[in-house]
Simulated assay, not measured.
Amino acid sequence: MSGRPPSYDKIVAAALEVFDQYDTAITLRQLYYRLVSRLLIPNTVNSYKRLSRIMVKAREEEAVPVNCLEDRSRRILGRGDTGYDSAEEYLKQKLSGLQDSWKGFTMLMWEEQPVYLLISLEKDALSRLVSRVANQYSVRTFPTRGYPSFSYVQIMANYMQTRLNGKPTILLYFGDFDPSGVDIERDLEDRLGRYGAKDFEVKRIALTAEQIRHYSLPPMPVKRSDARAESFMATHGDSSVELDALDPNLLQEMVEKTILENIDAHKWNARVRKIENLQKWIKDKLEDIEKVIDDEIESLEDS
């Protein structure tokens, strides 16, 4: 990386390449770490601020898609002024949703599996990317945003003991390869146990030193300000890598591969077939209900 900062055009071109790897909007922080991992920009506060300014300009000029970045730190509250023009309109809309509602029927997929799986993710910015894959296999994702709070760990422990009925559980952990990212794994295991979770294991899936070498992920110096830096460096050396630096497709592949490794395929496929049969039964029943409601709407419109 040269001493001169990359030009506006060069950053925009690189950002477009990153955006093309995702099928959803990403955060500015996520884009920042992807560009840092490419050694395009330095890992500094000023570099982050400059990237922010460039992305504002690029979106204003439509050099990048306007909706390529999202702001998860601010929320819009309230439903606003909403309503219907008539009761008939309301019924028709609800009926339209009812027609395809059979597709939403499912069953407990992990009930007959040997273990339950959960995912713990250090980076909230990657939560949609990870959960999109995990949801396909009925696996819940817990983004901790760094070290999770007391309340958040309590929620996790309670979920494991009540919703999962205390069944053996593997918590798949995805975090940075840095002092805090490595220590969060230990912290989770310790506090989940103290807060009531039983018969569980926290298992690091990414990032690992082996993955960093295998995928040639560019390292960054360890932050000396981290209280855990000394112990981390004694074991792993003076290099760290953010989880965000990993190609999103690789991350999703890791999630899916790990989940599939813990599934009894025979039991899973049998449950899928049962769901499909019941969905067909529900669809037939809904068609009968639809005919009755259609007649009621017609009589309402005629009155």
Score class of each variant (00 low, 15 high):
residue 1 M to Y: 02
residue 5 P to T: 06
residue 5 P to G: 06
residue 7 S to L: 15
residue 7 S to Y: 04
residue 7 S to A: 14
residue 10 K to H: 11
residue 12 V to G: 08
residue 16 L to Y: 03
residue 16 L to K: 11
residue 20 D to T: 11
residue 20 D to H: 13
residue 21 Q to R: 11
residue 21 Q to S: 14
residue 21 Q to Y: 06
residue 24 T to I: 15
residue 26 I to G: 01
residue 27 T to C: 07
residue 38 R to P: 07
residue 39 L to R: 13
residue 41 I to R: 06
residue 45 V to C: 07
residue 45 V to W: 08
residue 58 A to L: 12
residue 58 A to W: 06
residue 58 A to H: 03
residue 60 E to A: 10
residue 60 E to I: 09
residue 63 A to C: 04
residue 64 V to R: 07
residue 69 L to A: 04
residue 82 T to L: 15
residue 84 Y to T: 08
residue 86 S to R: 06
residue 98 L to C: 03
residue 101 S to D: 15
residue 104 G to S: 12
residue 109 M to S: 04
residue 114 P to G: 06
residue 115 V to L: 07
residue 115 V to F: 02
residue 120 S to P: 00
residue 123 K to S: 10
residue 123 K to I: 10
residue 126 L to R: 11
residue 131 S to N: 11
residue 131 S to L: 03
residue 132 R to W: 05
residue 142 F to D: 02
residue 143 P to M: 08
residue 153 V to G: 02
residue 154 Q to E: 08
residue 163 R to P: 03
residue 168 P to S: 07
residue 169 T to H: 02
residue 172 L to C: 01
residue 174 F to V: 05
residue 175 G to I: 07
residue 176 D to L: 12
residue 177 F to T: 08
residue 178 D to N: 09
residue 180 S to L: 10
residue 187 D to T: 12
residue 189 E to W: 07
residue 194 R to W: 02
residue 194 R to E: 12
residue 196 G to R: 11
residue 200 F to Q: 01
residue 200 F to M: 01
residue 204 R to I: 05
residue 207 L to Y: 04
residue 208 T to S: 09
residue 209 A to D: 09
residue 211 Q to I: 15
residue 224 R to Q: 15
residue 227 A to N: 10
residue 228 R to M: 11
residue 228 R to P: 05
residue 229 A to T: 07
residue 231 S to L: 09
residue 234 A to M: 12
residue 237 G to T: 02
residue 239 S to Y: 15
residue 246 L to R: 12
residue 247 D to Y: 10
residue 247 D to Q: 14
residue 249 N to V: 14
residue 250 L to R: 14
residue 250 L to F: 09
residue 251 L to W: 08
residue 252 Q to K: 13
residue 252 Q to H: 04
residue 252 Q to S: 08
residue 252 Q to L: 03
residue 253 E to A: 15
residue 253 E to F: 09
residue 255 V to W: 11
residue 257 K to R: 15
residue 260 L to M: 11
residue 262 N to A: 14
residue 266 H to N: 04
residue 267 K to C: 04
residue 268 W to V: 12
residue 270 A to N: 12
residue 270 A to P: 01
residue 272 V to S: 00
residue 275 I to A: 09
residue 275 I to H: 01
residue 276 E to R: 07
residue 276 E to C: 02
residue 278 L to C: 03
residue 279 Q to A: 02
residue 280 K to F: 05
residue 281 W to D: 14
residue 282 I to E: 02
residue 283 K to H: 06
residue 283 K to W: 01
residue 283 K to A: 14
residue 283 K to F: 02
residue 285 K to G: 00
residue 286 L to A: 02
residue 288 D to T: 04
residue 289 I to D: 00
residue 294 D to L: 09
residue 295 D to M: 08
residue 296 E to H: 10
residue 296 E to T: 01
residue 298 E to D: 06
residue 299 S to D: 12
residue 301 E to A: 09
